[in-house]
Write a protein that binds this DNA or RNA. Structure first.
Length: 283
DNA sequence: CGTAGACCCTGCGCGC
DNA sequence: TGCGCGCAGGGTCTAC
């Protein structure tokens, strides 16, 4: 479900509600996520602690807590993190609501609330780590550059891609090279840059890397402005969908005419992922 | 080291 | 209506 724009939108939507607010307790009713949830550890790090700030790294949402710990949440493919009004005692949790954070009154709300983590496919992740050493943790240590940071550039990508024979699409989706770019936005950025997704990463000229880096930044920023892309079930923390779907040029448009040249958009499978592109505009 | 492929899991929409 | 199939925005692990 979520790529960088969706996680960024989620973060911004939750910020006014969560920053400064205290977590009362944590309920875990399913530990079998991408990695086993550790309920006792999570409770020890979270319970009674205030959320100091929210951050995003790659597709991870981070909540720094008092006491030097950071709550780490990844939505995988089907995860959703939403605020809910106080639960009445009789109200059951949602189906697949694996973790619930009970929040004390505060932030934008005078009432206690629940922050609900729901994830049918269980590819997501909920854990807590020491804030000071987060970057050295195995989840983060290998991660590449943030595409919306100053450090990101075509030159950086070109340097890393030198000599690589893998398709440029695979190269861009490898988080060791650049983070946050998933299957939707990689297709969109490659279309905007006029680059064929199957072209070897090592066989792209520097000028085209500059164009591509610009296209990545552009498409991510536009998507954030539109609240992300809702295909089936993406919602932000307040339950709002995103509206970037109508702006997609190639993703999910197999057989439909290219907006630029009118030739039908093609779909091919690359490492088990659908890859959409225009055979006329991308080379 | 880089690369290709299998795998993890549930739900949905489609054609029959 | 029911069933089987392919598909889905994530990441990790293995074999070569």
């Amino acid at each position: 479900m979520p790529e960088l724009p969706e996680v960024e939108v989620l973060k911004r939507s939750l910020e006014p509600h969560l920053v400064g607010r205290r977590i009362r307790s944590v309920e875990v009713r399913e530990v079998r996520l991408r990695e086993p949830v550790r309920p006792k550890l999570l409770a020890r790090h979270c319970a009674g602690r205030r959320i100091v700030r929210l951050r995003r790294r790659s597709k991870y949402l981070l909540a720094d807590l008092e006491g030097g710990y950071t709550l780490v949440i990844h939505l995988g493919m089907s995860g959703r993190l939403t605020l809910a009004e106080p639960a009445t005692p009789a109200e059951p949790p949602e189906l697949h609501e694996h973790v619930t954070f009970l929040l004390a009154p505060g932030g934008a709300s005078r009432k206690p609330q629940r922050l609900r983590f729901r994830d049918p496919r269980r590819f997501g992740l909920v854990l807590s780590l020491k804030t000071a050493t987060l970057d050295r943790d195995r989840h983060f240590a290998h991660l590449g550059v943030e595409p919306l940071s100053e450090a990101f550039s075509g030159g950086l990508l070109a340097h890393r891609a030198a000599g690589r024979r893998a398709p440029v699409k695979s190269f861009l989706m490898d988080a060791r090279n650049v983070v946050g770019v998933g299957n939707i936005y990689v297709c969109e950025a490659l279309f905007r840059a006029g680059i064929h997704p199957f072209r070897s990463a090592g066989r792209i000229a520097l000028r085209r890397w500059d164009t591509l880096a610009g296209a990545i930044v552009e498409v991510l920023c536009r998507a954030i402005e539109q609240g992300g892309t809702t295909l089936n079930d993406f919602l932000d923390g307040e339950g709002n969908p995103g509206y970037f779907r109508t702006a997609l040029d190639v993703y999910g448009r197999e057989g439909e005419p290219c907006r630029r040249c009118r030739r039908p958009i093609r779909r091919k499978v690359l490492s088990q992922r659908s890859t959409f592109y225009c055979p006329g505009c991308q080379h």
